[in-house]
Amino acid sequence: MTVLEKKESSVVIDARGPRFSAAITVFVLAAALVTQSLFLITFQLAVFLIGATKGPQFTPYAFLFKSLIKPRLKGEFVPEDVRPPKFAQAVGFLFAVTAVAGLLTGGTILFTIATGFALAAAFLNAAFNYCLGCEVYLLLLRARR
């Protein structure tokens, strides 16, 4: 118990922010998947990159949440450690990179699969409050070492 408390990051954000961002991500990725638009998937890739490096509270979607959505929400602030959504953004980024690479090299099947996985993860997060880090991180560690 002490180990975790020491490692605990001090950055806490409103959990409703990443969930709102996930909902927008669903629409962007859905549109990208149907239209096979290089612009849309690259745009989402850039958003994932900001979320994975600077943090999910600095993406354009988070800005929309802060300026338009949050002032209208009646419920209380829901605290969340920034690390789990940051991890999810990093996973999304890897899928987006694969998707862009697929599209640029004419591998539409690769594009469709990678975008499909990213869409599924964003949808699960938005609709079911899915915690990607909870489900995937330990399995990755177990597989690696």
Binding site: V34, Q36, G116, L119, A120, F123, L124, A127, F128
Partner: peptide, 21 residues
């Protein structure tokens, strides 16, 4: 052809999400 992938993704994600919840 263009809508089949999204139907598969959202359908299976919904099934998984319900089980998850």
């Amino acid at each position: 052809k263009s809508f089949l992938p999204i139907l598969i993704v959202l359908g299976s994600a919904t099934a998984y999400g319900l089980w998850y919840q």
